[in-house]
């Protein structure tokens, strides 16, 4: 599912709002989430999961083409931890698909 398909699905499940409004809302939500993370704060969505920053220590990297060593500064990367409901739903789908069709 892409972002535009997500917008379609939300519109289809919402009685009032036009897809243009849903599109604006989705963009605003994603901007809010991105801004939150880039300012160092967490996102906590009950059942779905949480987003936080993880620190990567400074290290010596290598240019894969030239093999030359390059110093890489420490940096933060976004990290997502699925919530219990999401973990369970997804894991249950594994049980469904792994069941033999006929016994």
């Amino acid at each position: 599912m892409t972002k535009s398909e997500l917008i379609e699905r939300i519109t289809a499940n919402h009685s009032q709002l036009a897809s243009k409004d849903v599109e604006l809302a989705v963009k605003e939500m994603l901007e809010h989430m991105s801004w939150t993370l880039s300012s160092g704060a967490r996102i906590e969505i009950r059942g779905f999961g949480s987003f936080a920053l993880h620190y990567r220590v400074p290290r010596i990297g290598r240019n894969p083409k030239t093999g030359k060593a390059v110093g890489l500064m420490g940096k933060y990367v976004p990290h997502f931890k699925p919530g219990k409901k999401l973990r369970d739903l997804v894991n249950r789908s594994l049980d469904d698909t792994s069941l033999p069709d006929d016994i």
Binding site: M1, L6, I10, L89
Partner: peptide
Amino acid sequence: IVELFFDQILMVLERNEQVKISGFG
């Protein structure tokens, strides 16, 4: 809208389908 946003992502993942949100991840 906020509820639907996360619920729809959840439902798609439950169907074992990837979710691609350009610009986010």
